[in-house]
Design a protein around this nucleic acid. Structure first.
Lengths: 205, 205
DNA sequence: CTTAACTCAAACAGAGTTGTTCAACTTATC
DNA sequence: GATAAGTTGAACAACTCTGTTTGAGTTAAG
């Protein structure tokens, strides 16, 4: 029941990170994370058994590194979203015209998102709502800040609440990812469509 | 394994609708459908036991009317989507300016969608992809027809593929529903925001 | 009021899951 | 090459879910 949000590391039961991990352990953890991302993308209900097999690792080893299914999903979500957050920071949230900044951000984080959208979807529905919110809060609040600035500058519409604009962005990114998944768009086409649609959806009328 | 798409009726094993159903059976079926909608909205993984309890019937009775969990979900989706399809037809797909028609359609089907979005989400993920597609095909193709006409008339943008515009509508409706669910919008606010956002997202640039 | 339709609780079989323990084996690392 | 860290399959307990059967009880409908 207690949230073990010792984020960033894959320490299952050790309270303190203890010392360095052995090289093969490190390798296995990487393999598990990759396999899990791919498994959850294919099937949101993927079992620990499937994931261990896909990672080429015994089930016991999997539990050795991630104490529960939930811990694994939480770690996956944490990593994916913090990658995006890093890109967000690197974009320079508070500089340049807000609409240009958003555009740049979307473009530079698209590959990341495209790769992880389905896994994130799985995590979102298997994790308690509160945990999901915690993981998102960084990105969402940064987006909110960017959009709010854009409204003040006149680049974005202010006839609708900022939170709605944020979730518009969120929803359209999802939709673009789904189209790629369904084979109706290539990744590049999806990005272009997303870009064009966001531009007109957010611009002041 | 065989798809029993004898849609519209809740006949579990009877091949032919045989004769009328008894009044109490009819009543229970209605209670089950209502309870299931509400249960799946709260928890996409709701079990048959939960649903039977919520409907105030025995589990055996539930299985008596719906031969499997899948059959129940399929019936729910069928009913919800055909309600929407009915509204779509009633809107007069091929008359008047396409943007006005879309607007009218969204407005008149919003309550229906708002009520059922979460249940539909649950059904969508529990049913085989093919079945989901079959249920949607009516609405999606009608939407596609409307949007294609709108593009020819110059009301909607034609710099992006029609299927993308359709899924933009779909995604934003979802997002609006989620905002209501999250308590950040009332149903009316969400509808207004949806309306305004769709207008600018679909208009030609 | 009689019959056929319907309901129900309890109990069952079967399949899947999660997470743990054990005892032997392999591999990094110093 | 010794030792500690890491891995492994097998087996286990506990649980949840699905779908079915049974036999007795209830209720609508003619």
């Amino acid at each position: 029941m207690e949230s073990e949000h010792r984020s960033g590391a894959a320490n299952a039961r050790r309270g303190t990170p203890t010392h360095p991990r052995r090289a093969d352990a490190e390798r296995n953890i990487a393999a598990i994370l990759a396999a899990a991302t791919s498994c959850f993308a294919k099937n949101p209900n993927a079992s620990m058994t499937e994931i261990a097999a896909a990672a080429g690792v015994g089930r016991v080893t999997l539990y050795g590194h991630f104490s529960s299914r939930e811990a694994l999903l939480s770690e996956l979500m944490e990593r994916a979203l913090s990658e995006v957050a890093t890109v967000l920071e690197a974009t320079g949230l508070d500089e340049g015209p807000a609409d240009e900044t958003l555009r740049t951000f979307i473009r530079s984080s698209w590959q990341l998102l495209d790769r992880n959208l389905r896994m994130l979807h799985a995590a979102r529905r298997a994790l308690p709502a509160e945990a999901v919110h915690d993981h998102h809060v960084g990105i969402l609040s940064a987006m909110d800040r960017l959009i709010t600035r854009g409204r003040q500058e006149g680049a974005f519409r202010d006839d609708l609440p900022a939170h709605w604009l944020v979730s518009t962005v969120y929803a359209l990114v999802q939709a673009a990812g789904d189209q790629v998944e369904a084979g109706r768009f290539t990744s590049e086409e999806a990005l272009d469509a997303l870009d064009a649609t966001l531009a007109s959806a957010l611009r002041r009328p």
